[in-house]
Computed example of a mutant assay.
Amino acid sequence: MELYAHDSNNRFRASALLLVLLFQVTGRVAGESGSYPLVVSTWPFLEAVERAWSAVNNGSSAVDAVVDGCSACEELRCDGTVGPGGSPDENGETTIDAMVMDGVTMEVGAVAAMRYIKDGIKAARLVMRHTQHTLLVGEKASAFSISMGLPGPEDLSSSESIEKWNKWKENNCQPNFWKNVVPVNSCGPYYSNDLMVVAETTCSGDDPMRTVGLRSNHFGLHSHDTISMAVIDKFGHIAVGTSTNGATFKIPGRVGDGPIAGSSAYADSDIGACGATGDGDIMMRFLPCYQVVESMRLGMDPKDAAKDAISRIARKFPDFIGAIFAVNKNGTHAGACHGWTFKYSVRSPEMHHAEVFTVLP
């Protein structure tokens, strides 16, 4: 085809046609810094990213691709902290937290402290699609999921999670998440103690941790984790999803930031998306992913928005451990972290396979 005709009208028509062809091929106009479809996920969960990429590249919506990707991580039990069979609570039981958010409609579906159901992200999608609620919890979330067709009930423990729990019990239930309490014995039950300082100073010869049950910072790559994933589909629609079995040896009933929109993940198709991982008990106090998206709305690039959100937390909690990825609607992505080295995975049309990006604290 002759794109450069001799008269101005033909040149104008040829230029317009070239721009249309460019948009159809790349999904973006010239000058934008990214492209889509696009998948971004916390950690080197490459199989999960490829599963989501395959779905969205073959025409699935951003929401369905996110669910496919997070489901893969649940099936693979990524790092032992996603899906069934990991992160036992103080009673040795594994429970599931998950969330999905549609950045077009701003609808959210989530489940928390869900027992007996292994498909956390699928349960979250059912909440979004079939209820006017945002979050269902505990055994009622399990009953709802079964009524909507998910398999269950089933034991979410594994031989690995039971072995981990037994070793923790043998270590006098340390470390744990209690504070300002006095235990009847090292594994509880625990009772409130307003005079904790006195109790600590009078326990000569004893380990105050074992006597008072203080919380230690034991968040790390293999003690808890979350897959948090963002997908931009071929139409530029954005969705995010998360799944986790929470903090290892958490107090039963604890819910982290995994199912909390704005904390573990957030999406607005007009702006972009964010995913987070780390000490959810602290991070959920700041809604860092909501902060990231709103900062990008005000003109910050993804890198500065992510760094700003992490810095806000670190100023108040300098010992916290956490990380964020940010991606704008054009596909430009970046990460920020504190307390550990963070890795996140990306798949875009320019890549032959998912690639891992490393972010230093």
Rank of each mutant, 00 (worst) to 15 (best):
I271K: 05
L21H: 05
Y4F: 11
V40K: 09
N328M: 10
G83Q: 10
T226E: 06
N9S: 12
D97H: 05
A309S: 15
R315G: 14
D194A: 11
P288Q: 10
V66E: 03
A30S: 12
G335T: 02
W165F: 09
S61V: 00
A261D: 07
D308E: 13
I271A: 06
H6Y: 07
T105W: 01
E355S: 14
A309E: 09
D281A: 07
S192Y: 06
T105R: 14
L135K: 13
I162C: 04
A261C: 13
G339T: 00
P302N: 11
T134Q: 15
E160H: 14
I162P: 04
M229K: 08
A247Q: 10
P183E: 04
R210I: 00
F219E: 07
G103N: 09
M196N: 05
L18T: 06
G253S: 04
K307Q: 12
A30C: 08
R28S: 11
H237C: 13
I162T: 10
M1S: 15
S15I: 08
M1T: 10
G31M: 02
C337W: 01
V82Y: 02
A62Y: 01
D270R: 15
A143E: 14
N176K: 04
S263Q: 03
N193T: 00
Y4E: 11
Q24E: 12
S147D: 15
G322K: 04
C289M: 04
H333S: 15
H338C: 05
V137I: 10
R215V: 00
V39W: 01
V240W: 02
P349A: 07
I310Q: 09
I121T: 15
D257G: 07
I260C: 09
E47W: 00
R77S: 10
T105A: 13
Y191A: 08
Y344W: 08
T341M: 10
K250D: 06
S159P: 04
